[in-house]
Amino acid sequence: MAETAFLDGPNARLAYAFTPGSGPVVVFLSGYKSDMEGTKAVHLEAWAEARGRAFLRLDYSGHGQSGGVFEEGCIGDWAADAQAVIEAVTEGPLLLVGSSMGGWIASLLTQRLGARVAGFVGIAAAPDFTEDGFWAGFSEEERTKVMEEGVTYLPSAYGDPYAVTRRLIEDGRDNLVLRAPLPMPYPVRLLQGSGDEAVTRETLLALFDHIDSPDLRLSLVKGADHRFSEPGNLAMIEAAILDVLGAPAA
């Protein structure tokens, strides 16, 4: 496992782990309240290292080992954090692997990093969830609470309640990606489980429909949940990465 290193990012001191190797660099972008010590991130790092492939995982500000306060962050901050680490640590082509919110972050980075991006793998990708998930699902009372008091809390099936802040909602509106075509002129693979209770199939299909790619494929896995971390799921992620890279599975 690569050692954790740190750099001064745009919002806080940021933690990351980089494994050198051949490119494109596989960049794992984790989800909302998740971090680079999650099952998928650590598994894919070991998998990449065994194949001599460059790999980067990182913690956004307010997540994991990075500085900052989670409740003070937002999508724009976390995308800027990821971009800062990528630009400071890596060179050459990139394959972005985005899990849940990381799929939204990756979608933003495909626009900001331009020609450096050589492929995208989305795992239960959750673009625009602050607007189409949180805000759309709020009652009028919850909407009033978050806008007037600055925060409300939602239950989570995967840990502590989610803190949803007014800043998160308002910044999310500035970073929506499902309101216009998403040009991705390279291979794209989208993976999701049918048992995902956090990201709907409608979101998955909306992302599929908005991505403009010459090689776009979607896989919906019967029974898999939002974590998408069972052994068979991890093998599918590996296969998707190899497929995007045009590399043999063996």
Rank of each mutant, 00 (worst) to 15 (best):
T144C: 10
F120S: 01
R116M: 08
S139M: 09
F134H: 12
T152P: 02
G122E: 04
G122A: 10
P161L: 12
L109F: 05
Y158L: 09
P161E: 13
Q111M: 06
G150V: 10
G92K: 08
T130K: 01
L113K: 10
W104Q: 05
T110V: 15
L113R: 08
L96F: 08
E148D: 15
D128M: 07
P185Y: 04
E170T: 14
R189A: 02
P127C: 09
M101D: 07
A157T: 09
A124Q: 04
S156G: 12
T152I: 15
D171V: 03
Y162H: 14
A157P: 02
V151E: 15
L168T: 00
E91T: 14
G122Y: 08
F129W: 10
E142F: 01
S156Q: 08
G133L: 05
N175S: 00
I123S: 11
R189S: 05
P161V: 08
D171F: 04
D128A: 10
L168H: 01
S107M: 10
L178Q: 01
P155G: 11
E142W: 01
G119F: 11
S100T: 09
G172R: 02
P183S: 00
A126L: 04
R116W: 06
S107F: 00
S139I: 05
L182K: 00
S156M: 11
P183L: 02
L154M: 14
T165F: 02
G114T: 06
V97E: 13
I123P: 13
G119E: 08
D132T: 14
P155S: 12
P127H: 12
L94P: 09
G102D: 12
Q111E: 10
L95P: 08
G114W: 07
T165Y: 03
E141V: 10
E131I: 11
A118W: 03
D128F: 14
T152Y: 07
G103F: 07
P183H: 00
Y153W: 14
T144M: 09
G137S: 14
V188E: 02
V146R: 10
G119C: 09
V177P: 01
P161C: 12
M184A: 13
W104A: 04
L113E: 10
D171Q: 06
E140Y: 07
V121Q: 14
L108E: 03
M184W: 02
P187D: 06
E141N: 11
L178T: 00
D160K: 15
E148G: 09
V121N: 14
P93Q: 11
L182A: 01
A126N: 06
F138W: 11
G114I: 03
G133V: 03
W135S: 06
V121I: 15
A125M: 06
K145N: 03
V146L: 09
A125K: 04
G133P: 04
L182G: 00
M184F: 08
L154V: 15
S156R: 14
L94H: 11
L154W: 13
W104M: 02
V177E: 02
N175W: 15
V177G: 01
V97D: 13
G119L: 09
D174W: 04
R189F: 03
T110R: 08
G172F: 09
L109N: 07
R112Y: 00
F129I: 06
D160A: 15
R167Q: 06
P183I: 00
T144S: 14
L182M: 05
E131R: 11
N175Q: 10
P127Y: 05
A118K: 12
G172T: 02
L108H: 09
P181I: 05
R166K: 14
F129K: 05
E170F: 03
G98T: 03
I123K: 13
